[in-house]
Amino acid sequence: MIKAGQIDKGTALLIKGQPFVCIDREFVNPGKGSAFVRLKLKNPGTGQILAETMKSQDNAEDITVEDRDCQYLYNDGESFHLMLTDTYDQIEVPMANFPDYEFLMKDGDTYRCTFWEEQLLDIQIPSKVVYLVAEAEEAIKGDTVQGATKYVVTETGLKVKCPIFIKQGEKIRVNTETKEYLERVNS
């Protein structure tokens, strides 16, 4: 058991027998009221999102999770196929539970994954990742407007708004939470 006030992003809880991971947390003090935490929770098994408000002194049932390394193999359009690097066991998870992850994960790369009783709860993608630019429009000649941008597509299919000087074959660092361009990486 933990106090609701100690729940943070990433904390795993058991609610009505189902595992949920906290994806957003906000403290609220209503004008004439005690301290509450407003939580957004996600059941990684079903993708269900749950809104919940707890008093910071409420008890919540936290669950012990473990992190294991998984290699991302491929997706078949419906599921991600991953392999546990320690046992070589393969696992399959519905892509719908991890929206947009197909554009963020690179085939063959290894990710830390959170498990609860054999169930995959979370695939931890680093907050900043370097991607190869697979497609980029040519910058229009004479377009010298400061701060002008264009879209490029990475090796994983992620569409990113970039400064116009980024060319195909170059590498860029991207914030995977906001999917925003951060900088050009010289290789």
Binding site: S34, R38, L50
Partner: peptide
Amino acid sequence: GLSNVKRNESWESTFNRIFLT
């Protein structure tokens, strides 16, 4: 769908849970 609400808590606590969520 609130899971943490208590049967014996104050009216105000239950109200706040619903209102804030």
